[in-house]
């Protein structure tokens, strides 16, 4: 129909470019590529985030569990425009971000502290085991690693369930194991 020269098909972006645009739209907040129906695209984006949330939960069980029913939404909101860098790092980055915002629940803070003690993670490359003794801290939790063994020295403080006079009741350590296997 269009008058392309020599009867060739009109120029269009090559497969590589078009695949890149689709992936960017699905995982990096890119513009939806032209011609794709928006409904299926949105459903695919949501399905990918649910799948990622499940995979990150396997690497960060306490992070996911401590957010309970809110886990999927919390993760999806955080991850919607962040392409995955692997489940371990995705969960780590999210835990650090929540820690910085003071929204990391105590059990998740303990999990993060244990990880920080065990592995060195610069936020850019794959985490590596620490060779020397190290301390990991997050949200009041303190973990120590010596010769590859990690111990949670101090659990993260729990908000008291019943409001007490002084606001900060005695730390409720019920349910916080002193050892967290990693």
């Amino acid at each position: 129909m269009t008058g392309a020269p020599d009867g060739e098909t009109p120029p269009r972006a090559g497969l590589a470019e078009r695949q890149a645009a689709l992936v960017a739209a699905l995982v990096a907040g890119g513009e939806p590529p032209a011609g794709f129906a928006p409904g299926p695209l949105a459903a695919t984006r949501a399905a990918l985030l649910r799948k990622r949330a499940g995979e990150v939960a396997r690497h960060w069980p306490l992070l996911a569990a401590s957010l309970g029913a809110g886990w999927s939404t919390t993760f999806a909101n955080w991850a919607a425009r962040r392409p995955t860098v692997g489940s371990l790092r995705d969960g780590w980055d999210l835990a650090r971000a929540m820690h910085d915002q003071h929204t990391l629940p105590p059990a998740a803070a303990e999990e993060l502290a244990v990880r920080e003690a065990r592995l060195r993670y610069d936020g850019l490359r794959a985490p590596r085991p620490r060779r020397v003794p190290a301390v990991g801290r997050a949200g009041g939790a303190v973990a120590v690693q010596i010769a590859g063994r990690v111990r949670l020295l101090r659990p993260a403080p729990r908000p008291s369930t019943a409001p007490s006079f002084h606001g900060e009741g005695a730390p409720d350590t019920a349910g916080s194991a002193s050892w967290i296997s990693d």
């Binding site: 470019e17 890149a20 689709l22 992936v23 699905l26 990918l48 995955t84």
Partner: peptide
Amino acid sequence: VRAGGLEAGHLL
């Protein structure tokens, strides 16, 4: 599963 340096994390 990947394009333009991004991992889709799933089969597309």
